[in-house]
Write a protein that binds this DNA or RNA. Structure first.
Length: 272
DNA sequence: AGCGGAACCTGTCGGC
DNA sequence: TGCCGACAGGTTCCGC
């Protein structure tokens, strides 16, 4: 589920579903390592607070609460939020249940238990959020921003685009896609990227994410149905998970390589 | 300071 | 059928 477009979709749905509702109780079925620290404190800080708004910051979900407080969630690889009517029995992967005043429940579900839930009285206390670079849709994402940050970097461009401290929100799937559209090889050393190429990267970062958000909006708009990997979302990908399939542009077979222990997919003919 | 690699968990899939 | 290794959309921490 979780790259920026999916998180954006979830956040939009959560805003519709839970804003104005308040938390009456919190049941934790498995905390480690999802909820850090004192579980009772975590529960007590949430109980009685209501949801004011649920924005996204990079791939983090921020629940702004009243009276003032903030729950920061990260879905990592397999986390999900599900909003549903009251049920009695948790399924195998339900980790936390939030019972709401309306009678609904918000469920945090996570197969691999990589996801995180944290409560902050002051949002500025979140080290993770403080470290993040700028948003992909930010006006401040310019050629000059990249040049000032990484122009002389010897790292591969894929590594730069995945670096959340530089640009926050891109994940493994979309970096492959963005570089394909930009016609730039994922192994290019960053300092060799020209002004014109940076402009392409910025352009396609925005357009690929925008298309994906629109796409996911239709595929998983009803996120209470637990289906992540279906429909238009898959069709929209040009290179990710397409090893040995013909490039949609030139017909040469897409290659898969490993960079920093993660798969990268690219067209050796179109991307330089 | 900045980088690459291991670690955190559990499940699925393909090959033998 | 069963076992085993490779792999999965992310981040943090540790050592060099």
């Amino acid at each position: 589920m979780p790259e920026l477009p999916e998180v954006e979709t979830v956040v939009r749905e959560l805003n519709d579903e839970i804003c104005g509702d308040s938390i009456t109780s919190v049941e934790i079925f498995r905390s480690n390592p999802i909820v850090q620290g004192d579980l009772e404190a975590f529960q007590n800080q949430l109980i009685g607070r209501s949801f004011k708004s649920v924005p996204r910051r990079a791939k983090y979900i921020v629940f702004h609460l009243i009276p003032s407080g903030h729950m920061v969630a990260h879905l990592r690889m397999t986390g999900k939020f599900i909003v549903c009517g009251s049920i009695d029995v948790p399924n195998k992967y339900h980790r936390v249940w939030f019972h709401l005043n309306s009678g609904k429940m918000m469920i945090f579900d996570d197969v691999r238990c990589f996801g995180t839930l944290e409560f902050y009285k002051k949002l500025s206390d979140s080290k993770a959020l403080n470290k993040l670079g700028i948003e992909p849709f930010s006006e401040n994402l310019t050629v000059n921003y990249f040049k000032s940050k990484v122009a002389s970097s010897k790292r591969e461009i894929k590594s730069i685009l995945l670096d959340q401290q530089i640009i926050a929100g891109l994940g493994n799937i979309y970096v492959s896609e963005i570089l394909f559209h930009s016609r730039i090889s994922p192994i290019r050393i960053t300092e060799t990227i020209s002004q014109k190429e940076w402009a392409e990267i910025i352009k396609y970062t925005k357009s690929v994410l925008k298309d994906a958000i629109e796409n996911n909006g239709t595929t998983i708009s009803d996120f209470r149905r637990v289906d992540d990997k279906t429909g238009k979302f898959q069709q929209f990908l040009q290179v990710y998970d397409k090893k040995d399939q013909p490039c949609t542009n030139c017909g040469i077979l897409i290659q898969r390589i490993i960079q920093h222990q993660r798969s990268t997919f690219f067209c050796p003919e179109c991307q330089h």
